[in-house]
Write a protein that binds this DNA or RNA. Structure first.
Lengths: 335, 335
DNA sequence: CTGAAAGCGCTTACAG
DNA sequence: CTGAAAGCGCTTACAG
């Protein structure tokens, strides 16, 4: 590792260290000639400014934190997390930012994370994945004054900035669609009801039933955990209630539900229609042609980072929210 | 965000800034009395030293990079990545380190990543997930002089330090076991054969056959991609060859293979025994009781980070390797 | 457009 | 054990 400094580059190109700094930071006040000379030396030597020195003086670390509560069972099986990470990685790369990942397990991790995050000069802001347990942390983080954007609606939605997708509306649309296409007994496998995303998607379901003059049938509603296995187990519980359609709050659960339905000897969509939620468009498409709600996960990461950078730049105090639209994708699992 | 400096703490506790620094860094040369006084002020104010200032002067950023080539299809579906990330996160937390994640897609990401990684004062070292495509990058990274540990055996194994598990030996043991328990026609679904892990696990398979005096039967070997879906598809190809046992190079593929076998109407393990590889011990256990090789994934991350920290501290030049033992876990999918 | 100078917040010999 | 001082490698008014 060479350790050239600005001073070295300045000497080699016959200008002052101020000028070199200006060239590096694309400052306008540099003559064409000087700029070219310096640029040449930089290219030739492969000089890279010292990140820490730069962070110290400019008060900008060019790094943000992504905090994921590890309390979520689905972390290891739900493509949501890799997709989210990919989206944020791409957005960061575009903005010349870097992100540090924090996976919190126990209370101790939490304290350690908090101490490190609080160190000035370390990160410019934080992206925090909303969930039930971690939500206590949101208050602490918000109080610390560190720029913060929550991924998904947090319980304290008026206090912090967040980005979310239109969970309620999109599910409502999907269930409307099922009703319009002649289904009478629509069941749902919800997400965990101690999370806002679980609550909101369930709300979309009940909204639609109510709006269409249908009563709420307890026996048609079960609570899952977003995993394939929970979809499978919960669908078994639902089958005796004889639904003719199912809305599952994630694709993984929809896949599990389909497995249970087939095992039971029923046909999809002839006997039961199934709608999922996610449609992450992975490199390997699922073998089942699933009607589902597509959430724009890549855009989600992108919008979150942009909102965060905006807050960092403008020292904006008032919480802001960004809600992204999802889209119903109709395929072969509904009739 | 308060922005106290060392100087402020020094004033408040009636000592010099040197002494405060010593307290923070646990330097022995501080009187009990001074230490207590300073500690009290620190606790009271919640002072945290400025990370960038510290990194600048101590030449240690307390951050490392984790680089994952995103070229791998299985990134979105294989629990390997979340497990790995968790292992490294835990190890980092213990060592008071932070890690930045780099997910590379195209050539452009690669250049950006490289430029950022090369900036001095930004990261102390790099963990690089081995794979076929990214391996060109390993040379560049190694040449840059940045401390580097590769996760999994890289193709240029003599040039860089790495940690790996005993792929060849453990698979050999597993296939030995199948032979010992009376199986005659053992097939395998390998990993991608342009990766060292794919190659090594296949080698374990052929080693065992050879050692036990069995010929290599082309029709019993197919190449998968580590995903469930590829296990399913490839097993279908394998069934006409009438194997009585299968070694799949990942649990995901084993699960896919089992799906195909059951669909075909055969029984496990009565007709075909199945052994997988991974046994990540996720919070949600798989519904199938699978005989498999357990790789110590949490330890893997831990050992990798420790090796890296060691290299950083000792400026060690000669490449080192750490090989971890896996373990055959016998369950109900073998007879 | 350019350079000399101050300063960011630390750590660490050095002298006492 | 303690403090004054130098210095890490940058950026950014300031004066020209």
């Amino acid at each position: 590792m060479d350790s050239l400094t600005l001073e070295d580059i300045a000497r080699k190109s016959g200008v002052s260290r101020s000028t070199v700094s200006r060239v590096i930071n694309d400052h306008p006040n540099v003559s064409q000639k000087a700029r070219e000379r310096v640029q040449e030396v930089i290219n030739q030597t492969g000089f890279q400014p010292h990140a820490a020195a730069r962070a110290l003086v400019s008060n900008r670390a060019w790094t943000c934190g992504l905090i994921l509560p590890r309390t979520i069972n689905s972390f290891f099986t739900d493509p949501y997390y890799p997709c989210l990470i990919q989206g944020i990685a791409q957005a960061c790369s575009k903005q010349d930012y870097t992100f540090s990942l924090f996976l919190m397990g126990d209370k101790e991790d939490e304290e350690k994370m908090f101490a490190r995050v609080a160190r000035r000069g370390f990160m410019d802001g934080i992206l925090f994945q909303s969930d039930q347990i971690g939500d206590m942390l949101i208050d602490r983080l918000a109080d610390s004054g560190m720029p913060l954007v929550v991924l998904g609606r947090p319980f304290q939605e008026n206090k912090v900035s967040y980005v979310d997708i239109d969970n309620i509306e999109s599910v409502e649309t999907a269930v409307d669609y099922l009703l319009r296409t002649g289904h009478k007994r629509i069941g749902t496998i919800t997400g965990p009801l101690n999370t806002t995303v679980g609550i909101d998607r369930k709300k979309g379901y009940t909204n639609s039933l109510k709006k269409n003059g249908l009563g709420f049938d307890e026996s048609l509603v079960v609570e899952g955990t977003f995993t394939e296995e929970s979809g499978y187990q919960k669908m078994k519980k639902l089958l005796p209630a004889k639904p003719d359609a199912i809305f599952a709050a994630s694709d993984q659960m929809a896949l599990g539900a389909i497995r249970a339905i087939k095992e039971y000897g029923l046909d999809i969509p002839a006997d039961i229609s199934v709608i999922g939620f996610d449609d992450f468009q992975l490199p390997i498409p699922p073998s089942i042609s699933l009607t589902t709600i597509r959430q724009p996960i890549a855009r989600f990461g992108n919008e979150a980072l942009n909102l965060l950078l905006d807050i960092i730049k403008n020292k904006d105090e008032s919480p802001r929210k960004v809600i992204l639209k999802s889209e119903l994708i109709i395929r072969a699992s509904t009739k």
